[in-house]
């Protein structure tokens, strides 16, 4: 499933983001990078339909996102925030089950099919040991995985993630990177994620979108635009990209 953005203008609090033209292909991992406050999260929120654009359109497989009903949208696009609110201390299983809400009528609780989908996601991610625990008992790495599990239960072709690896230790960071690749390659998901540490990008993303001051600085295949000059301009800091073991590495 692909996403096309046309002449988009989004306002969030006092910030405005403009995207003239952007295209995300299906079955790819795309990364959004840029300095803090550049508009990565705003773009993700717009793509997820959580905030409505002031002008312009987002098309998901040709259907305009803002015209879809909430439940229809939820079946196409899921959104993984950095943290979930933990007002109520749900069991992990019930929390993941909430991903099924877009398939349910307002007065109906989840049915057998929803439980089955949730169980399938839990076994796919190997979360059996967590399922009976309470959300507030989880470590931050476990919480991120559980949030991704909820998005998988949502069973949408497109998954948007807001800096899914920030504050995680190295092992959990790599687990999530590998999982996102696997979801794109094996399960045909279209992944769009904002990324805080640019070192991860060559491992993670096929496609790269550089955002600065609410505008797209550059967008293209990672192999083409992951260049020292562009990254330096993006972050206002001179950087070098070197190759070692066939991989691109960033030197600060």
């Amino acid at each position: 499933m692909q996403i096309r953005v046309e002449r988009l203008r989004v306002r969030y609090e006092n910030f405005e983001l403009r995207v003239d033209n952007l295209h995300f292909s299906a079955n790819r991992v795309s990364a959004l990078v840029g300095p803090n406050g550049a508009g990565k999260s705003t773009l993700l929120k717009a793509l997820s339909g959580v905030i409505k654009p002031v002008a312009g359109s987002i098309f998901v497989d040709g259907r305009e996102l803002s015209r879809l009903r909430g439940s229809e949208r939820a079946r196409l696009v899921s959104y993984v925030p950095q943290e979930h609110s933990t007002a109520l201390n749900f069991r992990v299983f019930d929390f993941i089950l909430m991903g099924r809400s877009g398939y349910l009528n307002i007065f109906s609780p989840p049915a057998r099919a929803d439980y089955e989908k949730t169980e399938e996601v839990i076994s796919y991610l190997g979360l059996e040991a967590l399922a009976a625990r309470k959300c507030q008992e989880l470590s931050s790495g476990e919480r991120r995985i559980v949030l991704i599990a909820r998005a998988l239960a949502q069973d949408s072709k497109i998954i948007l993630l807001d800096e899914p690896t920030t504050f995680l230790d190295l092992k959990h960071e790599m687990e999530i990177i590998n999982l996102l690749r696997k979801l794109a390659e094996d399960r045909g998901k279209t992944i769009i994620t904002s990324v805080h540490s640019i070192d991860l990008i060559p491992r993670l993303a096929d496609f790269l979108v550089m955002i600065k001051n609410g505008q797209i600085l550059s967008a293209g295949p990672t192999t083409e635009i992951f260049r020292a000059e562009l990254l330096g301009t993006l972050f206002d800091y001179p950087l070098r990209v070197v190759e070692a073991d066939g991989r691109q590495l960033i030197l600060r």
């Binding site: 929120k45 997820s48 339909g49 959580v50 909430g70 439940s71 229809e72 949208r73 939820a74 079946r75 696009v77 899921s78 959104y79 925030p81 979930h84 609110s85 007002a87 109520l88 749900f90 019930d94 909430m98 991903g99 809400s101 877009g102 349910l104 307002i106 007065f107 109906s108 609780p109 989840p110 949502q154």
Partner: peptide
């Protein structure tokens, strides 16, 4: 009606953005 809305009330206890991205018409509900 409130008892029948129990599951929805669970989802609405998340943040508004999350509930909306899960497909709820947050304000109306």
């Amino acid at each position: 009606f409130l008892l029948k809305l129990g599951w929805r009330i669970n989802v609405l206890s998340l943040s508004d953005d999350e509930a909306r991205s899960l497909g709820l018409a947050v304000k109306r509900e």
